[in-house]
């Protein structure tokens, strides 16, 4: 056998520890640098005016009010459509059936859907909603496309949440004579709600930041959207256009900062909820 050069285990341990520490620092510093740059350049741009005025001159001047409104509309539609579908799927998978070929197909479908890149969702939304159903570039097309995109996330998190509800809860409910549906709606869902909400908020964050799926379905009109069928530009699309076409770097940084702060807030709320959820379920 070939003799291999070997360090003494203790020396090796020290070396590895140093190397790992170094690599971790690099990774963390890069990520923090990104956040710092956005906030440092973006925060000075943010003012009440920036948040409440519509963009003017292609975004060179004015604020980002209409893009904030568009982002809200789109995410609300996405969540309104995706949450019932996702939670319903999770309820079916966990409470109404046994593991078998059907659940395997459903899970496989959700998994595959989760792996599809957002640009494909964009293409699909463009053909189905914009062209075939004639919704045009609109809030409705964009919202529905996003709904399909976040559906797997909501299914997965809701399923986990429902699964973690102790079986004893259900048994007690059944022994009191409740039907399955009563048990689900009055015992299981309330108890699983923090976990379900976590998934919904996670999807909210993802829809706020999405660009590729939205730009071909909601379009990029800058005016304030007036109906479900009007085209609109979300914050992330606005930021992309400002940056890529070099329209205004200060405005781009400002928009990016609003976007990042919004998503961080959303994620912090999620994290807080998840923490609460975990401490509660570990106590039980």
């Amino acid at each position: 056998m070939k003799k291999r050069f070997r360090l003494k285990p203790k020396v090796e341990q020290k070396a590895v520890q140093f190397l790992l520490c170094l690599m971790t620092s690099i990774a963390v510093l890069i990520l923090i640098f990104i956040l710092a740059v956005i906030l440092k350049n973006g925060l000075p741009e943010i003012s009440l005016e920036f948040l409440t005025k519509n963009p003017a001159h292609m975004g060179r001047e004015g604020g980002i009010f209409s893009t904030i409104v568009a982002t809200l509309y789109l995410t609300v539609i996405a969540l309104l459509v995706a949450t019932p579908l996702g939670v319903g799927t999770a309820i079916y998978l966990t409470e109404y059936t046994f593991e078998g070929i059907v659940t395997r197909i459903i899970r496989f479908g959700a998994e595959c859907l989760a792996g599809i890149p957002s640009i494909i969702f964009g293409l699909f939304g463009f053909i189905l909603f914009v062209n075939k159903l004639k919704f045009g570039w609109s809030i409705l097309s964009g919202g529905l496309t996003l709904a399909f995109m976040v559906l797997p996330t909501i299914i997965r998190t809701s399923e986990e949440a429902i699964k973690s509800v102790p079986a004893a809860y259900r048994l007690v409910s059944y022994s009191l004579g409740s039907t399955r549906w009563q048990t689900v709606t009055r015992v299981v869902l309330p108890s699983a709600s923090p976990g379900i909400i976590t998934g919904v908020i996670l999807s909210l964050g993802r829809s706020i930041g999405e660009t590729a799926a939205v730009i071909f379905t909601a379009g990029s009109a800058l005016h304030l959207p007036s109906s479900l069928f009007s085209s609109a530009r979300t914050m992330s699309v606005h930021f992309y256009i400002l940056a890529r076409e070099g329209i205004s770097m200060p405005k781009a940084y400002g928009t990016a900062a609003v976007l990042v702060i919004a998503i961080l807030l959303v994620n912090i709320v999620t994290y807080y909820l998840m923490g609460k959820y975990i401490t509660r379920s570990s106590r039980e």
């Binding site: 990104i34 956040l35 956005i38 964050g205 930041g209 940056a243 961080l264 994620n267 912090i268 994290y271």
Partner: peptide
């Protein structure tokens, strides 16, 4: 902290 950063939209990474 790292998990929060997972939410930063990809356009922001591209821009930086």
């Amino acid at each position: 902290v790292i998990e929060l950063l997972a939410g930063i939209p990809s356009v922001v990474y591209g821009f930086l």
